[in-house]
Design a protein around this nucleic acid. Structure first.
Lengths: 148, 148
DNA sequence: AAGTTAGTTGTATAATTTTGCATGGACAAA
DNA sequence: TTTGTCCATGCAAAATTATACAACTAACTT
């Protein structure tokens, strides 16, 4: 019936629990009231560009991609941050794999005055500032946000 | 016979040409003189942590999924590196398309003291260091590793 | 209304992948 | 040498995934 809704649910589902086969995905969708056959899910997977690992289906890129409510920067940071370092006028943030983009996006959204821009890889974000001092300040603010 | 060699060939093959099914992979390996059945390849794929997309098999996007088949940094560099440049406190590494992440991961794993972090795109890695001198040193160490 | 087109899905089946089991080789201990 | 233990692999069956085709729907057009 509602392809878009189903796919949103698929993404949401995969973020929370693993589904190693399309059949499994099918069952779990059914529990959410979505009844479709494995064939339909196969098509969804193709069009969504999901990838298959032995552990289960995953999004091609990062865990996010869902247009849902935005958790704020501190929440994102607490969730994904592993390490913060300064490198001259850059701040280097290490995140859990696949989540660099979320952190970078949250930082961008926060619009800190010292932050000139960000680049995200898979598990690392570079935050560009205008100078060494600014970089230090950004690093400190981040450390403040993640708490004691 | 030689599992390790076969897997090296699989990686090499996937870098150059697409293989959408295990059967296809099987054929292409055969052309390189490696004759195994699709079942063996299925096992290789599992142990190497490869992922399946509709377009073909690929290396996992997060290297941590690769069980230590640990090609060391010099090997990775020799294989993938195209160019190294310094840009202020950054080292910019150009790789063969699609392999930037492997190089970045290998660099991360090497834990060089001068390296504060890396970000990888498709064929480019930015390596952040804390200053111009450190960047030069990193560049030189990389050149040492690949050079004869 | 009737026809047309494009898009979505289920059914049935084809194609592909995974796996249980058996075989054979390498190596070590007896 | 003989025995036993790992592994790696092939074979074939089971499990999973992809797809051809037909049915249906919604939105238009004539």
């Amino acid at each position: 019936m509602d392809k878009l809704y189903r796919r949103t649910q698929i993404l949401d589902l995969l973020k929370r629990e693993a589904a190693a086969t399309q059949g499994e995905l099918c069952e779990k969708l059914a529990r959410r009231g979505i009844r479709v056959t494995q064939a339909t899910i196969s098509r969804d997977i193709e069009e969504m560009g999901l990838i298959k690992t032995r552990a289960g289906y995953r999004l091609a890129d990062s865990i996010d991609a869902l247009p849902s409510a935005q958790p704020t920067l501190p929440i994102i940071l607490k969730e994904f941050l592993r390490e913060v370092r300064k490198a001259s006028n850059l701040v280097v943030i290490k995140t859990h794999p696949g989540n660099a983009h979320s952190v970078a996006a949250a930082l961008d959204a926060a619009e800190w005055p010292e932050v000139e821009g960000t680049v995200a890889g898979d598990d690392t974000v570079f935050v560009a500032t205008d100078g060494t001092q600014e970089a230090s300040r950004v690093r400190n603010r981040i450390l403040d946000l993640v708490g004691p």
